[in-house]
């Protein structure tokens, strides 16, 4: 699946991951071969509002380039936060 970029998120998904997060999706946004960016939450057990902000920004950039964004392996408290924020309206949940 060459056209999917899977970004594995850290245990603590907050502003400290901002630079790395941007670096990991930037190339995919410009690369026309990449059709989908998947955020893998399997390691995440904490996320804050700045992480949600980063996800909104990624969604906006991906939407502008007609790319699909999705999340996978979301569970526990993280799932509750994403549900409360209604992120299923932006991201496909796998």
């Amino acid at each position: 699946m060459d056209n999917v970029n899977i970004i594995s998120l850290p245990d603590k998904f907050d502003f400290s991951f901002h630079k790395e997060f941007t670096r990991r999706y930037d190339d995919s946004i410009l690369n026309t071969d990449v059709a989908e960016i998947v955020l893998d939450f399997s390691r995440v057990n904490y996320l804050d509002s700045s992480a949600l902000g980063m996800m909104v920004l990624l969604y906006r950039k991906a939407q502008a380039c007609n790319k699909r964004v999705s999340v996978k392996n979301v569970s526990g408290k993280t799932a509750e936060i994403l549900k409360m924020a209604n992120f299923q309206k932006l991201y496909a949940f796998e």
């Binding site: 409360m84 924020a85 209604n86 932006l90």
Partner: peptide
């Protein structure tokens, strides 16, 4: 009344 909406300032008018 649980959150059924996204926060303000994210979605386009149509959504």
């Amino acid at each position: 009344i649980a959150s059924e909406n996204m926060a303000l300032g994210i979605l386009d008018e149509k959504d």
